[in-house]
Design a binder for these strands. Structure first.
Lengths: 117, 117, 117, 117
DNA sequence: GTGGTCTAGACCACA
DNA sequence: GTGGTCTAGACCACG
């Protein structure tokens, strides 16, 4: 599980950390039930403050992707990470289709988030 | 084209305005080439500052969704709005699939934006 | 009396165990005077440490819900469990009313705990 | 709107602040749409760190009670605070009933939060 | 040893 | 001038 952040990225640090961890989960680099690196360790590895990592972890918990427990660390929630592989295929197809039509990923993401048909 | 903003939404105003306009375009409520409401008018209608609306318009131009013409208002880009209808079908399907698997929209949007396979 | 704990619950384990036991009592699954499962057994069933269960039992005793007897296990207090059924009806009604008004359970619980009219 | 916190209270500071603010809203000391004190001001008044107040404000936003906006302060959300008065009557009645039956407020609050009939 | 709370103080983004 | 982010570093609660 390789996690890096990009200093030139304008997004807040905690969001970048969150995205990186989420990506690792989506890619299956950490399996459901498996423990993520301790917040302090990850913070040191990324040269970022512990609170920043904890902020990211908390947001991912809110998202339903992680479980956090005092004294027990952060784990990938079992039910959330069932079958990303198949979903990823569809995402890739959709992205190709969008690019063919000249619709940018940002717009596509907005369609996904904002539509309530 | 009905545009409203939700006071309980925590996102910055300019972003909410942008989302609302984008949504109108996605839904086909504004056709390619058609002019959007003047920033001043929209600002008044939403009871926000003109700069907030201009900020939103600027972002949508950078996203490739709008074209801004000094003094002539903003229009929907022709090439960007080719076939939102068809794309929306696929988006709806993908969302249904994701919800079936217990994957939240936020996670799904992240897969779209962050994946680089 | 079925007791389970939810891994996605962020609260400390001892609190979750306490809630689960309290719920069983409230539901009438354990009658006043009846013995609760031995801490050791419950701990094993839930796959948590015995101390965690004992911590929960201790809190429930302080709440007045249980009576702990050294070597004889824990029993439901007679005076505390007089008429949960009737109370539950009113609780359900109150909750319905609150939900109708758009007031969340958390806020409602706060009204109950914090109000001192 | 008088807000105080109790140093002898074992609960975390941010929770006490949150409870105090919530109570003020419930009591109608701040009306929907009205602005709460700026986080910095409240923090100074309570002799507590700004982040602690912001933490409390954020939790209340999650609860649906407040709206927070960068540059616009914190306001009581319109829909959440519609009719607490009537609800409070019922809460008082329920509490009286519970006390008559020997059920403690903590247990009652648990019934409210945990029951899912 | 884990996440969580809290502080003091700097700086940023929004309006 | 508002909330939001971030840091460094202390201490606490849980398991």
């Amino acid at each position: 599980m390789l996690i890096t952040i990009d200093p030139s990225d304008a997004r807040p640090l905690f969001e970048q950390v969150g995205s990186a961890v989420r990506l690792a989960v989506i890619r299956g680099e950490v399996s459901p039930g498996e423990r993520l690196p301790a917040a302090r360790d990850l913070a040191e590895a990324l040269d970022v403050n512990v609170n920043t990592v904890l902020h990211a972890y908390r947001d991912l918990r809110e998202e339903g992707l992680l479980e956090l427990h005092r004294g027990r660390g952060a784990t990938v929630s079992a039910h959330a990470a069932r079958d990303f592989a198949r979903l990823r295929e569809q995402v890739v197809q959709l992205r190709a289709e969008a690019s063919r039509l000249g619709v940018r990923p940002a717009t596509l993401a907005a369609m996904l988030t904002e539509e309530t048909p």
